[in-house]
Measured scan of single mutants.
Amino acid sequence: ELREAFRLYDKEGNGYISTDVMREILAELDETLSSEDLDAMIDEIDADGSGTVDFEEFMGVMT
């Protein structure tokens, strides 16, 4: 189920989504998050600083 959700956002099928897209997902899930909260969450999610979120990083957030 998580893989299907990931595929919805990984429109190009390249195995990752951008941190911008991940930020939008988080904002949709919790509309009360401030910009600073979102920045901090993205920094934590994208631990390797690649600017992308792969499936493993995505799973870590969603579980």
Rank of each mutant, 00 (worst) to 15 (best):
A5D: 06
R3D: 12
G49E: 05
F58Q: 00
E28H: 13
T52G: 05
A40Q: 09
K11N: 08
L33G: 02
L2D: 06
F6T: 02
E24H: 10
D43M: 15
Y9G: 02
F58L: 05
I42G: 00
G49L: 07
V61Y: 14
V61L: 13
L26M: 06
L2H: 05
K11D: 07
A27N: 06
Y16S: 07
D39G: 05
R23V: 02
G51D: 03
S34H: 05
E57M: 15
R3W: 15
D20V: 13
I42F: 07
Y16P: 00
V21T: 12
M62V: 07
E28T: 12
T52F: 10
G49D: 05
T52N: 08
I25W: 05
E56V: 12
E12I: 06
D54M: 12
E4P: 03
N14C: 08
G15V: 02
E1M: 09
L26N: 00
F6E: 04
T32D: 07
E56I: 12
V21R: 09
G15A: 03
G15W: 04
M22K: 00
K11H: 09
G15D: 03
F58R: 00
N14P: 01
T19W: 05
F58Y: 08
M41T: 03
T63E: 11
E36D: 11
Y16Q: 06
R3Q: 13
D43T: 12
A40H: 12
G60N: 14
E1A: 14
L2M: 09
Y9P: 04
E57V: 15
V21P: 00
G51P: 00
E31L: 13
G15Y: 03
L26T: 00
V53C: 03
D30K: 07
M41P: 00
D48H: 09
T63N: 10
D37V: 10
S50H: 07
E57S: 15
A40W: 07
A27M: 12
G13C: 08
M41Q: 05
A5R: 13
E1T: 14
L8I: 11
E36S: 12
I42K: 01
M59K: 09
T52E: 07
L8H: 14
M59Y: 12
V53F: 05
L2P: 04
D48T: 11
D48P: 03
L38E: 01
V61Q: 04
S35A: 10
T19H: 04
D37Y: 06
D39H: 06
E1D: 15
L8Y: 14
V21K: 13
F6C: 09
G51Q: 05
A40K: 14
R3K: 14
M62A: 04
D54Y: 14
V21F: 06
T52R: 11
T32M: 06
G51C: 04
I45R: 01
E12D: 11
D46V: 05
E56A: 10
G51Y: 03
E4C: 14
I45C: 04
G60I: 15
D39N: 09
L29N: 08
G49I: 02
R7M: 15
L38Q: 01
E36K: 09
E12R: 04
S35L: 09
E1V: 11
L38M: 06
E56K: 10
D43N: 15
I45L: 11
S50A: 05
L2S: 02
S18K: 06
V53T: 01
T19C: 07
N14Y: 06
I17N: 00
E24K: 14
T63A: 11
V61T: 06
D20P: 04
M22L: 14
R7W: 13
R7S: 14
E12M: 10
V61H: 08
L33Y: 07
D20S: 14
G60K: 15
G60H: 15
G51I: 01
L29C: 12
D37I: 10
F55A: 04
S34L: 06
D39A: 07
S50F: 05
F55Q: 03
L29I: 08
G15M: 03
V21Y: 07
L33R: 08
A47I: 12
Y9K: 04
E28N: 13
N14G: 04
G51K: 06
L29M: 13
L2T: 04
D20T: 13
S34F: 04
A40Y: 10
L8S: 13
G49F: 04
R3H: 11
I42C: 02
E44K: 14
Y16H: 06
F55L: 09
D10S: 02
G51W: 02
L29P: 00
E12T: 10
D37M: 12
G51T: 02
A27Y: 10
